[in-house]
């Protein structure tokens, strides 16, 4: 029918446009970082003396280290808490408590990063500062990131655990396994792929998070010696310096954006493959 054909045409155009957005983003990032990618040796990002972009020193490594440390720290805290939360909802809580707690986690997921950052800045950082000055530190960044990725890990782990077939669990209890025995021996292994995919997605989120970390982590470009030292992450660096960056400096910022995006893309591709394997 003619209207059908017309409609499909219009829809197809919309879909093509939507799909092109990703390509457009990639193109413009490459275009803007091209002068540096071709003009400077890649090794300068590794071997320059420091990050002093106005004097032409572009060592990205301390900030990459800051990004990775903050994300890993957040994962170490958020993974056990998130999985425990999901287990609570699926296996341990009474029914009404489970749904209340699940709501709470979903609401936590909706709180914007700037509010987490603000809270970290006014509450967490001063608390840490009383104990180990200056307060704005890697630890504060890790704690704020933990709160931000916790809902994601909980919700994906919950989805994976809730999808474990009932028969498996019934068989386990028929064999006389205790509740924890069932969880550890049957439910967690069965849901492992889904939980891992969720954790990887959360890692990607943590790597790319900007505002909250920018507000609490102190933003000093250095390799931190302890968790109480301030650090600067790649994303925070872009937000801080983009406003006045010119020429090569601006291009280097785009390179770091590209780097961040590639890291995140690799992680989400891994998560996607896991998900696919789960449904295969």
């Amino acid at each position: 029918m003619q209207t059908d054909r017309l409609l499909t045409g219009v829809l197809r155009a919309g879909a093509v446009l939507a799909a092109l957005v990703m390509l457009l983003i990639l193109c413009f990032l490459l275009l803007e970082s091209w002068p540096v990618l071709t003009g400077l040796s890649v090794f300068r990002f590794l071997t320059d003396a420091s990050w002093h972009p106005l004097e032409g020193a572009y060592n990205l490594m301390p900030m990459l280290a800051g990004t990775l440390l903050a994300s890993i720290g957040a994962l170490i805290l958020a993974v056990p808490l998130g999985i425990a939360s999901a287990l609570f909802i699926v296996f341990f809580a009474p029914l009404h408590l489970a749904s209340i707690y699940k709501r709470l986690i979903e609401l936590l997921a909706g709180i914007p990063s700037v509010v987490f950052g603000f809270w970290g800045l006014t509450t967490l950082a001063p608390l840490i500062g009383e104990w180990q000055p200056p307060g704005a530190s890697l630890l504060a960044g890790v704690l704020v990131l933990t709160l931000m990725i916790l809902p994601m890990i909980t919700i994906t782990a919950y989805t994976a655990l809730a999808a474990v077939p009932k028969e498996l669990l019934q068989n386990a209890s028929a064999l006389g396994l205790s509740r924890w025995g069932t969880v550890r021996g049957v439910a967690l292994p069965a849901a492992r792929t889904g939980i891992t995919a969720g954790v990887i997605l959360a890692a990607a989120r943590a790597l790319g998070e900007t505002m909250a970390v920018l507000m609490v982590a102190g933003n000093v470009v250095q390799y931190p010696e302890s968790v109480f030292d301030p650090v600067r992450t790649l994303a925070a660096n872009i937000a801080l310096e983009m406003a006045y960056a010119m020429g090569d400096h601006r291009s280097v910022l785009f390179v770091s954006g590209l780097l961040l995006m590639l890291l995140v893309m690799v992680l989400s591709a891994m998560a996607g493959l896991l998900e696919k394997r789960r449904y295969a």
Binding site: E32, L260, M261, S268
Partner: peptide, 16 residues
Amino acid sequence: SLYVLAGVPSIVFGLF
């Protein structure tokens, strides 16, 4: 394409 787009960090959207 949309799956990849969903993972792009917001600061990268800012740059773009």
